[in-house]
Design a protein around this nucleic acid. Structure first.
Lengths: 312, 312
DNA sequence: ATCGATTAATCACCAATGCTTATGAATGTG
DNA sequence: CACATTCATAAGCATTGGTGATTAATCGAT
């Protein structure tokens, strides 16, 4: 009964009360005067009370009108505040994005984008979870992360993948190393040199193992490390060479190392955005996704597709 | 833009979010499922965001949906509280009535009605202002009083009068007074006896003066008092007789006095309800007005009219 | 008094909204 | 693989909400 009262009506009512005139209020609201009359009449019908005593010369509130005005004011103010919040949220002035990403992606790709996104949308809280592939998928699945940045997942029923760039395994060595000048090196060749590697739990190490298996060679690392920087230090000290994804090279720049693409087999994995199918992205997330799409590097056999990230 | 969001929509949204199902929510709301779908679609259109990710098997909130749910909940709760207040007000469970009345009316007519009204509507605050005719009109004019109880005002443009009962001037004396047994007494006869009277500012006194002037006699009261009880005491003590409105007799019952109608001229004034024209009565006031109308005493030349108070 | 200006109510008419029933498409379940 | 469930869509209809034109009332100024 009373629940049928509309915000429109309350606003109209408030305006009429404030202007003490139907015509003026109608003009201010952007409505014809008859329409406003009808609106108020309707309001009065649903309330069962006259809210204005009106003649052609004056419009003034009845006692119930007074009461209603207090309530309507409270109501409309409340709504406007709430609407403002939502407005902010939708306009990306408030909100949060959670990105789950592989450590290298988290370190190399995201920081500049995040910095820029942050500058554009100061109200948005960006959170980054770096983790391994499995953990990333889990977070995306559960919704704990808005999207992930990792390699392509197998499960195409649950995830949609959008490739951003290629990450190829390369050999890393000192600039004075015999292999340093080469345009390419095979895994078999690499196996003949002392090697350092990431620990077995990492996907980088697993890529290396896969490649070696395919090449029919075995590598026994002299050292294993779980941090990339350690690998960099070891290689820089001449302890050995390492097979690393090209994406991680920027992180090793400090060590002044050389890199050479590895082949036979070429180990290349596509790094991209992983999203949960059937779950739409938040407005805030969309902004970051769009930004990522712009920075996507044109890769082989990808030129014909659409240019932007599917924003659903 | 955002202002077009409807309470219906918010409520529907809330219900769907709660039930995690369109069908269940539709049933609970009392709406067909397609109607509910349309409602949500409309909401999404005006917001420009999808609020539910829905398949035929599951319905769950998007990030914006989560946000909206918080706001919608707040909004709807607020409204329900406010609507409850108004509901109370309209149902006369809250409110206030201010009555301005002549002292005698305030003392004689109103108390029983107020007591009963109070019992029926415990939430309503009743306030009574007793004052003289002019003050009553002023309060009714300004809106300080919802209505007045007094004699008929001259100004028929501004006030509407509704007669409740007749108030006739009677002579009040001790039961053993020579005039006590009479069926009527003229003002001239009264003038031959020692008299006490109300002070000059009261309308009772003015009525007396008017009557004496018409009768061509003059009365010099032995005593003047501004309180009715004082007059009662004086008359009871045998100091003199007094001319008082019949309405005040109940107040003098304590003194055990006799009364005799005064004539030549008959001074009778109609006491009734005075309302401001063009100003509608509050719901709370209407209740009291209706009650007054019921207790109205059938007076001469009034039998053919409508029985209830015009409630407008 | 009468005229003109102002203002709210009313009317006739049209567009848009909201609802219902019937139907279709998708997706788990036995 | 049929079945049941569930949301979306379609078609038809009543209601609502809107506009412009007109009317009635009232105030102020001739």
């Amino acid at each position: 009964m009373l629940m049928n009262v509309t915000l429109r009506q309350l606003q109209a009512f408030r305006q009429v009360a404030e202007q003490a005139s139907f015509s003026k209020a109608a003009e201010r609201i952007g409505l014809s005067q008859p329409a406003l009359s009808a609106t108020i009449r309707k309001l009065e019908e649903t309330l069962g009370v006259r809210v204005f005593d009106r003649t052609t010369r004056q419009v003034l509130l009845t006692p119930e009108g007074e009461e209603l005005l207090r309530l309507a004011t409270r109501m409309v103010d409340e709504f406007e505040a709430v609407a403002g919040d939502l407005q902010d949220y939708l306009a990306r002035r408030r909100g949060r994005v959670v990105v789950a990403a592989l450590p290298t992606a988290a370190a190399v790709i995201l920081p500049p984008m995040i910095a820029r996104y942050r500058a554009d949308n100061p109200g948005i809280d960006i959170r980054m979870h770096d983790g391994l592939h499995g953990a990333i998928l889990e977070q995306v699945r559960s919704g704990a992360a808005d999207f992930g940045i990792t390699v392509e997942p197998q499960d195409t029923d649950e995830f949609r993948f959008e490739r951003l760039l290629a990450d190829r395994m390369v050999l890393v060595c000192r600039p004075d190393h015999p292999l340093a000048g080469r345009t390419a090196v095979t895994w078999a060749e690499m196996a003949e040199h002392p090697t350092v590697a990431m620990s077995r739990t990492t996907s980088v190490r697993q890529s290396m193992e896969t490649a070696c298996a395919q090449a029919g060679v075995t590598i026994h690392p002299l050292y294993e490390a779980s941090h990339l920087a350690t690998i960099g230090g070891l290689v820089g000290a001449g302890t050995g060479v390492a097979a690393l994804p090209s994406l991680s090279l920027p992180l090793l720049r400090f060590a002044g190392l050389a890199s050479v693409p590895l082949e036979s087999p070429v180990m290349e994995r596509g790094i991209g955005i992983v999203r949960r199918i059937g779950r739409s992205a938040s407005v805030a997330a969309r902004g970051l996704l769009a930004m990522l799409a712009l920075h996507r590097e044109p890769s082989e056999a990808d030129g014909q597709g659409s240019d932007g990230v599917e924003v659903h």
